[in-house]
Amino acid sequence: MLFFSYFKELVGKEVTVELKNDLAIRGTLHSVDQYLNIKLENTRVVDQDKYPHMLSVRNCFIRGSVVRYVLLPQDGVDIDILHDATRREARGG
């Protein structure tokens, strides 16, 4: 559940989600669930000309299984806290 908890910390931040079909969407992280499904608000597609059908989409739900990357804000992660949490998770606690 580490990554679920981690993504929950990022709610409200601006992220870019790149999907396995190369579609990249930038938006404010609204919520995330245990499957790492993602809901974004105020979305805009990075390459808008290539995806005209996404023009009027402002809120969207992305299925966790189709996500390739999530690009985080520069200050999106405190490495020390993440290290500790990773060790704790690895120990099974």
Partner: peptide, 17 residues
Amino acid sequence: ENVVLIGELDREKDELP
């Protein structure tokens, strides 16, 4: 399993250019 993305269409905006 076939779903990639579900987007809400904003009624205020044009759906296509």
